[in-house]
Nucleic acid binder design. Structure first.
Length: 611
RNA sequence: GCACCCGUAGCUCAAAGGAUAGAGCGACUGACUUCGAAUCAGUAGGUUGGGGGUUCGAGUCCCUCCGGGUGCGCCA
């Protein structure tokens, strides 16, 4: 049987996509020789050849462990008599090296303990890397256009509630993921799905009518909405008669009482406006908004269809629910998918009612090929149930649905943030504090800047400071929010990367124009080679991040790049160097600046010119 | 009970089944008359939770145990 979540697992073990390898012209002929030689050695080989960079500082080259893999195959073959695989690997590597000879573009070809190492000529390739980056500019590392169209659903906020830092991880992750898909060459649709109806909204409306009638939101709308929501929750939880009273409002809702609907529309728009402001600050935009309220009725119709088709069981006559007994339908003895309730006993809709319809609507109306859901890990079983149900319904594209799960953000002591319980840190509070701190540091480091510029820099540093740590940790790690570390911008953090960009910019500003293309006529320093090697890798990193659904790859990449650029400018004088060296290093600096900027942009982080 | 996730330096985390497991923070020692010190150089810190297995090769894959987190019929 097929588990859907394995159908769309990221494909690991895929090296750099050939289309984006900056040295394919040189490596391809070598690969041809290797394959031909292996054939003549009677060793079967049909996989890709994986090249990784050689791990020796100051050298620039590619290595492959193919000798080991070939030796292992050789040993597995009957009658080969091969016992000592490392020894055989070295023999094969030597044979391959002999066959490869002295190919164009490489300065050395060696067999080392079973590995084959090719060193490229840095003087030649240094120029290629730099020229490519400067010619491509902000499109450097953009992938070739793919035929696949991808939708990324993320954020999915509830109206009438807080937007807290627990929600931040979702937006930042989803936004970065969408950026990456788009840049990798996929046509990308950013979708947001608003929870604008349900018990939380009914409670809110009840509380408003009862205690806040005719009030208008004061100041921070989202906060004001949250305060009423907290009050409503508390009242309903503490006093059963209050809950009863609030629930009565459902009747008016179901009857589409015009007055109530009008109030809902007005209050809902307050919430939406407030949250849209947050998106604007974060630099997020969406191509399409779905609303729970608009998919509720079609969802119910879909459930009727499921009942008719004997997929869902209608137990309402006995006071039960409408449910899909997945394990039973699939004939599974072991509990796997369990039961998905798709309609309440009173006939009202649930999350699943709407999600089933919406899943199909996405493909039908947007003509997408893949549908990605950025939703926290606690909904993994639920997502599996939805996708499986779609599959049972015969909706083949269910195989192209993928749940991008991420762990939640807790408060210290494993306290889960909950707007219901009011245990939240509001995004706005965090941002304001972060901006304040960043502003203080700018003031201290660069008092000469205009006030306007200081404010701009502080905002981009603060936002980067908040975003980067959420992207630089793998999605399956639980995050703990505490003020101290959230506002600590030292070390492996966004300001360090932004600062590297600023320094590059500063050198270039002093130099004036970027010189014309030039090859280095001197022996490159190790720091330069390391930097060039890293620069050449952004294209493959973008592809890998998209393939693995991991902005983390880029977060790691851009930090490494920043560190290597910093190392370069500390060791290698640029402006004071002789003409050829100065010109090449200026171009290298410009290439680093561009690549830092492009990489940060994919993470949704701005690269300031000064700070 | 059935599943999923986590466990790597004192702390927070990296690490394409591949070459010597790397960063940051914290600690200690140094570097601003030098392209900007939000920086850099150096020192210390590890039997990758324990035990089996697969493999030429395991932090990475499989099994098992321990410790922590999460989910599992009318919440979203």
């Amino acid at each position: 049987m097929s588990f859907l979540l394995t159908a769309r697992q990221p494909c690991y073990n895929r090296p750099c996509p050939p289309e984006k390898r900056m040295f394919k012209e040189e490596l391809n002929p070598v690969e041809t020789i290797i394959l031909r030689t292996l054939k003549s050695l009677k060793i079967e080989w049909d996989a890709e050849i994986v090249w990784s960079s050689t791990p020796f500082s100051g050298e620039w080259g590619f290595g492959t462990a193919i000798g080991f893999q070939a030796a292992a195959k050789d040993a597995a073959a009957k009658d080969s008599g091969v016992k000592n695989i490392p020894q055989r690997a070295q023999e094969i590597a030597q044979a391959l090296v002999k066959a490869i000879g002295a190919p164009a573009g490489f300065v050395s070809v060696e067999a080392v303990r079973g590995y084959i190492n090719l060193s490229i000529d840095p003087q030649v390739y240094a120029r290629r890397v730099v020229d490519t980056i400067l010619a491509d500019g902000e499109n450097f590392a953009r992938g070739d256009a793919k035929t696949e169209k991808v939708m990324v659903e993320y954020s999915a906020p509830n109206t009438h509630k807080a937007f807290h830092v627990g929600h931040l991880r979702n937006v930042i992750l989803g936004g970065a993921m969408a950026n990456i898909f788009e840049f990798a060459g996929y046509e990308t649709v950013r979708a947001n799905y608003w929870g604008d109806i349900g018990w939380h909204v009914i409670k809110w409306l009840w509380c408003y009518l009862r205690f806040h009638k005719d009030e208008e939101p004061q100041g921070d709308r989202t906060r004001w909405m949250q305060e009423i929501y907290s009050q409503a929750t508390q009242l309903v939880e503490d006093q059963p008669e209050m809950e009863e009273e609030a629930r009565k409002l459902y009747k008016r809702w179901d009857a589409r009482d015009p007055e109530l609907i009008a109030l809902w529309e007005r209050t809902r728009s307050w919430s939406i406006e407030g949250i849209m402001q947050i998106y604007e600050v974060l630099g997020e935009h969406f191509d399409v908004f779905f609303f729970e309220s608009e998919v509720e009725e079609p969802g119910k119709k879909l459930v009727e269809e499921l009942i008719t088709r004997n997929i869902a069981v209608d137990d309402r006559p006995n006071g039960g629910t409408v449910a899909i007994k997945l394990d039973e339908l699939l004939g599974l003895d072991k509990e796997t998918f369990r039961v998905l309730v798709v309609l309440r006993s009173d006939g009202s809709s649930l999350y699943a009612t709407k999600d089933l319809h919406l899943a199909i609507k996405k493909f039908d109306e947007w003509n997408i090929d893949r549908s990605i859901y950025v939703i926290d890990v606690r909904q993994s079983l639920y997502m599996k149930q939805i996708f499986k149900t779609l599959e049972i319904m015969g909706f083949k594209q269910s195989l192209n649905c993928f749940h991008l799960a991420y762990e939640i953000v807790n408060l210290p002591g494993d306290v889960t943030m909950s707007s219901r319980e009011g245990t939240v840190v509001m995004f706005d509070d965090l941002l304001q504090e972060a901006v304040k701190r960043a502003r203080d540091i700018v003031q201290q480091k660069n008092p000469g800047l205009s006030e306007d510029l200081k404010a701009k820099v502080a905002l981009s540093v603060a936002l980067g400071g908040l975003k980067y740590p959420l992207l630089a940790v793998d999605t399956n790690k639980v995050a703990t929010f505490d003020w101290e570390s959230a506002l600590n911008f030292e070390g492996q953090a966004s300001p360090y990367i932004q600062y590297a960009h600023v320094r590059a910019n500063s050198i270039l500003a002093r130099a004036g124009d970027i010189p014309a293309p030039v090859s280095p006529a001197y022996t490159l320093e190790a720091a330069e080679i390391t930097l060039l090697d890293r620069l050449s890798r952004l294209p493959e990193t973008v592809q890998r991040a998209a393939q693995d659904y991991k902005p983390l790859h880029l977060a790691n990449y851009v930090y490494d790049l920043a560190r290597e650029f910093t190392n370069f400018y500390q060791r290698c004088p640029v402006l004071r160097a002789d003409e050829n060296m100065r010109n090449f290093r200026l171009r290298l600096t410009a290439a680093a600046r561009q690549t830092l900027k492009n990489s940060l942009a994919l993470l949704g982080i701005q690269a300031p010119d000064v700070m």
